[in-house]
Amino acid sequence: MAILVTGSTGTIGTQVLDHLKDSGAEVRALTRKPDDAQLPAGVAAVKGDLSDIDGLRTAMKDVSTLFLLAPNAADEQTQALQALGVAREAGVKGIVYLSVFMGEHYTDVPHFTSKFSAERMIEQFGLPATILRPAYFIQNDVRQKEALLKQSVYGMPIGAKGISMVDVRDIGDAAARELLRRERASERQPGETYELVGPDVVTADWVSATWSEALQRPISYGGDNLVALEARLKAVSPAWLAYDMRLMMQRYQRDGAAATAGQVKRMTLLLGRQPRSYRDFAKACAAAWAKE
Protein backbone atom coordinates (compact mmCIF):
# COMPACT_ATOMS: atom_id res chain seq x y z
CA MET A 1 0.00 0.00 0.00
CA ALA A 2 1.11 3.57 -0.61
CA ILE A 3 0.78 7.24 0.24
CA LEU A 4 -0.59 9.36 -2.62
CA VAL A 5 0.32 13.06 -2.60
CA THR A 6 -1.81 15.45 -4.65
CA GLY A 7 -0.59 18.93 -5.57
CA SER A 8 2.77 17.21 -5.63
CA THR A 9 4.71 19.74 -7.71
CA GLY A 10 3.40 22.88 -6.00
CA THR A 11 4.71 24.87 -3.05
CA ILE A 12 3.25 22.63 -0.35
CA GLY A 13 3.34 19.34 -2.23
CA THR A 14 7.09 19.58 -2.78
CA GLN A 15 7.57 20.21 0.95
CA VAL A 16 5.45 17.17 1.81
CA LEU A 17 7.46 14.97 -0.54
CA ASP A 18 10.72 16.31 0.85
CA HIS A 19 9.67 15.29 4.36
CA LEU A 20 8.46 11.87 3.20
CA LYS A 21 11.35 10.92 0.91
CA ASP A 22 13.50 9.13 3.51
CA SER A 23 10.65 7.62 5.53
CA GLY A 24 10.72 4.18 3.97
CA ALA A 25 7.08 4.45 2.93
CA GLU A 26 5.97 3.91 -0.64
CA VAL A 27 5.11 7.38 -1.94
CA ARG A 28 3.34 8.31 -5.14
CA ALA A 29 2.90 11.81 -6.58
CA LEU A 30 -0.18 12.72 -8.59
CA THR A 31 0.76 14.99 -11.49
CA ARG A 32 -0.66 15.95 -14.86
CA LYS A 33 2.77 15.60 -16.51
CA PRO A 34 4.67 12.64 -15.02
CA ASP A 35 7.50 12.94 -17.55
CA ASP A 36 8.23 16.53 -16.53
CA ALA A 37 7.82 16.15 -12.77
CA GLN A 38 11.02 16.62 -10.78
CA LEU A 39 10.44 14.35 -7.81
CA PRO A 40 12.69 13.06 -5.02
CA ALA A 41 14.37 9.73 -5.61
CA GLY A 42 12.05 6.83 -4.88
CA VAL A 43 8.83 8.80 -5.40
CA ALA A 44 6.71 7.40 -8.24
CA ALA A 45 4.89 9.79 -10.55
CA VAL A 46 1.23 8.94 -11.24
CA LYS A 47 -0.64 10.66 -14.05
CA GLY A 48 -3.87 12.43 -13.15
CA ASP A 49 -5.50 15.42 -11.52
CA LEU A 50 -8.46 16.04 -9.24
CA SER A 51 -10.75 17.12 -12.07
CA ASP A 52 -10.39 13.76 -13.86
CA ILE A 53 -12.61 11.25 -12.07
CA ASP A 54 -11.56 8.19 -14.06
CA GLY A 55 -7.89 9.05 -13.73
CA LEU A 56 -8.35 9.71 -10.02
CA ARG A 57 -9.98 6.32 -9.54
CA THR A 58 -7.05 4.66 -11.27
CA ALA A 59 -4.53 6.63 -9.23
CA MET A 60 -6.29 5.70 -5.98
CA LYS A 61 -5.84 1.94 -6.51
CA ASP A 62 -3.72 0.35 -3.78
CA VAL A 63 -3.49 3.68 -1.98
CA SER A 64 -3.89 3.49 1.78
CA THR A 65 -3.21 7.11 2.75
CA LEU A 66 -4.00 10.30 0.84
CA PHE A 67 -2.65 13.82 1.09
CA LEU A 68 -5.38 15.98 -0.41
CA LEU A 69 -4.54 19.48 -1.56
CA ALA A 70 -7.20 20.93 -3.85
CA PRO A 71 -5.87 23.63 -6.19
CA ASN A 72 -6.86 27.26 -5.85
CA ALA A 73 -9.17 27.03 -8.85
CA ALA A 74 -12.65 28.24 -9.74
CA ASP A 75 -13.95 24.69 -9.19
CA GLU A 76 -11.85 23.95 -6.09
CA GLN A 77 -14.85 22.84 -4.04
CA THR A 78 -15.98 20.34 -6.68
CA GLN A 79 -12.47 18.92 -7.03
CA ALA A 80 -12.04 18.49 -3.29
CA LEU A 81 -15.44 16.88 -2.70
CA GLN A 82 -15.12 14.42 -5.56
CA ALA A 83 -11.58 13.47 -4.47
CA LEU A 84 -12.90 12.73 -0.99
CA GLY A 85 -15.69 10.71 -2.57
CA VAL A 86 -13.30 8.63 -4.66
CA ALA A 87 -11.05 8.07 -1.63
CA ARG A 88 -14.06 6.91 0.38
CA GLU A 89 -15.11 4.51 -2.37
CA ALA A 90 -11.56 3.16 -2.61
CA GLY A 91 -11.44 2.43 1.12
CA VAL A 92 -8.49 4.68 1.85
CA LYS A 93 -7.72 4.24 5.56
CA GLY A 94 -6.20 7.67 6.17
CA ILE A 95 -6.54 11.17 4.73
CA VAL A 96 -4.64 14.37 5.47
CA TYR A 97 -6.62 17.28 4.08
CA LEU A 98 -5.11 20.75 3.66
CA SER A 99 -7.79 23.27 4.63
CA VAL A 100 -7.29 26.85 5.81
CA PHE A 101 -7.10 28.73 9.12
CA MET A 102 -10.35 30.56 9.98
CA GLY A 103 -12.22 28.85 7.16
CA GLU A 104 -15.34 28.41 9.28
CA HIS A 105 -15.50 32.16 9.93
CA TYR A 106 -14.50 33.78 6.61
CA THR A 107 -17.66 32.67 4.83
CA ASP A 108 -17.49 35.48 2.26
CA VAL A 109 -14.06 34.37 0.98
CA PRO A 110 -14.69 31.76 -1.75
CA HIS A 111 -11.65 29.53 -1.26
CA PHE A 112 -12.10 29.55 2.53
CA THR A 113 -15.71 28.41 2.18
CA SER A 114 -14.71 25.76 -0.37
CA LYS A 115 -12.26 24.25 2.08
CA PHE A 116 -14.71 24.36 4.97
CA SER A 117 -17.28 22.54 2.81
CA ALA A 118 -14.77 19.72 2.42
CA GLU A 119 -14.30 19.70 6.19
CA ARG A 120 -18.06 19.32 6.59
CA MET A 121 -18.06 16.32 4.25
CA ILE A 122 -15.22 14.73 6.23
CA GLU A 123 -17.16 15.23 9.44
CA GLN A 124 -20.54 14.08 8.10
CA PHE A 125 -19.19 10.83 6.67
CA GLY A 126 -16.77 10.17 9.51
CA LEU A 127 -13.82 9.96 7.16
CA PRO A 128 -10.53 8.95 8.85
CA ALA A 129 -8.85 12.29 8.33
CA THR A 130 -6.49 14.82 9.80
CA ILE A 131 -7.54 18.34 8.86
CA LEU A 132 -4.67 20.80 8.67
CA ARG A 133 -5.62 24.48 8.71
CA PRO A 134 -2.62 26.60 7.67
CA ALA A 135 -2.57 30.36 8.10
CA TYR A 136 -1.23 32.73 5.43
CA PHE A 137 2.10 31.41 4.15
CA ILE A 138 5.20 33.29 5.31
CA GLN A 139 6.88 32.54 1.98
CA ASN A 140 4.21 34.51 0.13
CA ASP A 141 6.18 37.55 1.23
CA VAL A 142 9.13 36.63 -0.96
CA ARG A 143 7.04 38.43 -3.58
CA GLN A 144 7.59 41.65 -1.60
CA LYS A 145 11.27 41.64 -2.57
CA GLU A 146 11.10 44.35 -5.25
CA ALA A 147 8.95 46.69 -3.15
CA LEU A 148 11.16 46.18 -0.11
CA LEU A 149 14.45 46.66 -1.91
CA LYS A 150 13.50 49.33 -4.45
CA GLN A 151 10.77 51.34 -2.71
CA SER A 152 11.53 50.49 0.94
CA VAL A 153 7.87 49.51 1.32
CA TYR A 154 6.11 46.40 2.53
CA GLY A 155 3.25 46.25 0.05
CA MET A 156 0.81 43.56 1.19
CA PRO A 157 -2.22 45.24 2.85
CA ILE A 158 -2.44 42.91 5.86
CA GLY A 159 -3.83 45.53 8.24
CA ALA A 160 -3.38 46.11 11.96
CA LYS A 161 -5.25 43.16 13.51
CA GLY A 162 -2.52 40.57 12.97
CA ILE A 163 -1.94 37.25 11.17
CA SER A 164 -0.11 34.23 12.62
CA MET A 165 1.69 33.46 9.37
CA VAL A 166 3.14 29.95 8.98
CA ASP A 167 6.31 28.70 7.27
CA VAL A 168 5.61 26.32 4.37
CA ARG A 169 8.35 24.00 5.61
CA ASP A 170 6.38 23.52 8.81
CA ILE A 171 3.26 22.73 6.80
CA GLY A 172 5.15 20.03 4.89
CA ASP A 173 6.60 18.64 8.12
CA ALA A 174 3.21 18.53 9.84
CA ALA A 175 1.54 16.88 6.87
CA ALA A 176 4.26 14.23 6.54
CA ARG A 177 4.06 13.40 10.24
CA GLU A 178 0.31 12.84 10.06
CA LEU A 179 0.53 10.90 6.79
CA LEU A 180 3.11 8.53 8.24
CA ARG A 181 1.21 8.13 11.50
CA ARG A 182 -1.91 7.13 9.64
CA GLU A 183 -0.03 4.98 7.11
CA ARG A 184 1.77 3.01 9.82
CA ALA A 185 -1.27 2.48 12.02
CA SER A 186 -2.71 -1.01 12.00
CA GLU A 187 -6.26 0.33 11.91
CA ARG A 188 -8.17 3.47 10.96
CA GLN A 189 -7.42 6.37 13.26
CA PRO A 190 -9.97 8.91 14.55
CA GLY A 191 -10.17 12.41 13.15
CA GLU A 192 -7.81 15.19 14.19
CA THR A 193 -7.67 18.90 13.43
CA TYR A 194 -4.64 21.17 13.73
CA GLU A 195 -4.31 24.90 13.15
CA LEU A 196 -0.95 25.38 11.43
CA VAL A 197 0.26 28.74 12.67
CA GLY A 198 3.45 30.60 13.41
CA PRO A 199 4.59 32.06 16.75
CA ASP A 200 4.48 35.71 15.56
CA VAL A 201 1.37 37.87 15.15
CA VAL A 202 2.27 39.84 12.04
CA THR A 203 0.71 43.31 11.86
CA ALA A 204 1.41 46.29 9.61
CA ASP A 205 3.58 48.02 12.22
CA TRP A 206 5.30 44.81 13.34
CA VAL A 207 6.20 43.68 9.83
CA SER A 208 7.59 47.12 8.94
CA ALA A 209 9.79 47.08 12.04
CA THR A 210 10.89 43.50 11.34
CA TRP A 211 11.94 44.26 7.77
CA SER A 212 13.61 47.49 8.90
CA GLU A 213 15.72 45.44 11.29
CA ALA A 214 16.48 42.74 8.73
CA LEU A 215 17.41 45.14 5.91
CA GLN A 216 19.08 47.71 8.19
CA ARG A 217 17.09 50.64 6.80
CA PRO A 218 13.63 52.12 7.34
CA ILE A 219 10.77 50.17 5.76
CA SER A 220 7.28 51.64 5.69
CA TYR A 221 3.89 49.98 5.33
CA GLY A 222 2.21 50.51 1.97
CA GLY A 223 -1.30 50.99 3.34
CA ASP A 224 -4.63 49.18 3.28
CA ASN A 225 -5.75 49.96 -0.28
CA LEU A 226 -7.66 46.86 -1.44
CA VAL A 227 -8.72 48.38 -4.77
CA ALA A 228 -5.06 48.75 -5.73
CA LEU A 229 -4.35 45.21 -4.57
CA GLU A 230 -7.09 43.75 -6.75
CA ALA A 231 -5.87 45.75 -9.75
CA ARG A 232 -2.29 44.49 -9.28
CA LEU A 233 -3.43 40.90 -8.97
CA LYS A 234 -5.71 41.12 -12.02
CA ALA A 235 -2.65 41.96 -14.11
CA VAL A 236 -1.13 38.56 -13.38
CA SER A 237 -4.06 36.29 -12.46
CA PRO A 238 -7.74 35.67 -13.30
CA ALA A 239 -10.24 38.26 -12.12
CA TRP A 240 -12.05 35.75 -9.87
CA LEU A 241 -8.79 34.97 -8.06
CA ALA A 242 -7.87 38.63 -7.67
CA TYR A 243 -11.28 39.30 -6.12
CA ASP A 244 -10.95 36.27 -3.83
CA MET A 245 -7.61 37.57 -2.57
CA ARG A 246 -9.09 41.02 -2.05
CA LEU A 247 -11.88 39.53 0.09
CA MET A 248 -9.36 37.57 2.13
CA MET A 249 -7.28 40.67 2.84
CA GLN A 250 -10.45 42.59 3.67
CA ARG A 251 -11.21 40.05 6.40
CA TYR A 252 -7.62 40.14 7.63
CA GLN A 253 -7.92 43.91 7.96
CA ARG A 254 -11.29 43.75 9.68
CA ASP A 255 -10.91 40.69 11.92
CA GLY A 256 -7.33 39.48 11.73
CA ALA A 257 -6.20 35.85 11.87
CA ALA A 258 -4.20 35.63 15.07
CA ALA A 259 -3.73 32.24 16.69
CA THR A 260 -4.32 31.54 20.36
CA ALA A 261 -1.55 30.38 22.66
CA GLY A 262 -3.24 26.99 22.77
CA GLN A 263 -3.17 26.67 18.98
CA VAL A 264 0.53 27.52 18.84
CA LYS A 265 1.21 24.98 21.61
CA ARG A 266 -0.69 22.25 19.74
CA MET A 267 1.29 23.04 16.58
CA THR A 268 4.50 22.83 18.62
CA LEU A 269 3.52 19.42 19.98
CA LEU A 270 2.76 18.14 16.48
CA LEU A 271 6.16 19.27 15.14
CA GLY A 272 8.11 18.34 18.25
CA ARG A 273 9.66 21.81 18.18
CA GLN A 274 8.75 25.49 18.01
CA PRO A 275 7.26 26.62 14.66
CA ARG A 276 9.58 28.75 12.54
CA SER A 277 9.29 32.50 13.03
CA TYR A 278 8.64 35.29 10.54
CA ARG A 279 11.58 37.24 11.94
CA ASP A 280 13.99 34.43 11.04
CA PHE A 281 12.47 34.29 7.55
CA ALA A 282 13.03 38.02 7.06
CA LYS A 283 16.64 37.78 8.24
CA ALA A 284 17.32 34.85 5.90
CA CYS A 285 15.81 36.72 2.94
CA ALA A 286 17.82 39.83 3.67
CA ALA A 287 21.05 37.80 3.85
CA ALA A 288 20.29 35.99 0.60
CA TRP A 289 19.31 39.16 -1.24
CA ALA A 290 22.53 40.90 -0.11
CA LYS A 291 24.55 38.22 -1.91
CA GLU A 292 22.78 38.70 -5.26
Rank of each mutant, 00 (worst) to 15 (best):
P157F: 01
L271H: 00
P238I: 01
L269R: 08
L69M: 14
A2L: 07
L20Y: 07
A147Q: 11
K21T: 08
E89G: 07
A129R: 00
F112Q: 03
Q151D: 11
Q189L: 15
L226F: 12
T14D: 00
P110N: 15
G94N: 10
A147Y: 11
K234A: 15
G126M: 08
L68I: 12
E178K: 06
E76R: 08
A287Y: 05
G262L: 07
L148P: 12
G42T: 08
S152F: 01
E26C: 02
A231Y: 01
A214F: 09
L247M: 14
Y221L: 00
A228T: 11
T14F: 08
G155S: 11
V43H: 02
I95L: 14
S186E: 14
L81S: 12
I12R: 02
E230Q: 11
D224R: 01
E230F: 00
L50G: 02
L81N: 09
I95Y: 00
D167N: 14
E230L: 04
P190C: 00
V166H: 11
F101H: 13
P238V: 05
V227H: 04
M248Y: 10
A286K: 04
R217S: 08
K234G: 05
A160M: 06
A80S: 14
A129N: 06
Q144A: 15
R273Q: 11
L81Q: 14
G91M: 14
Q79F: 07
V142P: 07
V100N: 01
T65V: 15
W289C: 10
L4S: 02
Y221D: 02
L180G: 05
L180E: 10
D54V: 08
V197P: 01
V201C: 13
A41V: 09
P157K: 00
V168P: 07
M156Q: 00
G222L: 06
I163D: 02
L229F: 06
L149W: 03
G198A: 12
K145P: 08
E213V: 13
L132N: 03
G91S: 12
V100M: 09
F116S: 06
L215A: 10
T9H: 06
V264M: 01
Q124M: 11
A259N: 02
K115W: 01
A258H: 04
Y278H: 07
S64M: 13
G162H: 05
D224T: 09
V86D: 00
T78P: 02
R182W: 06
I171L: 05
A129L: 05
V207R: 09
G10A: 13
M249C: 10
M60F: 13
K234P: 12
L20A: 04
W206S: 15
Y136L: 13
T260F: 08
R120E: 15
G7Q: 10
Q38S: 14
P34H: 02
A118T: 04
K115L: 01
A129V: 10
K21M: 10
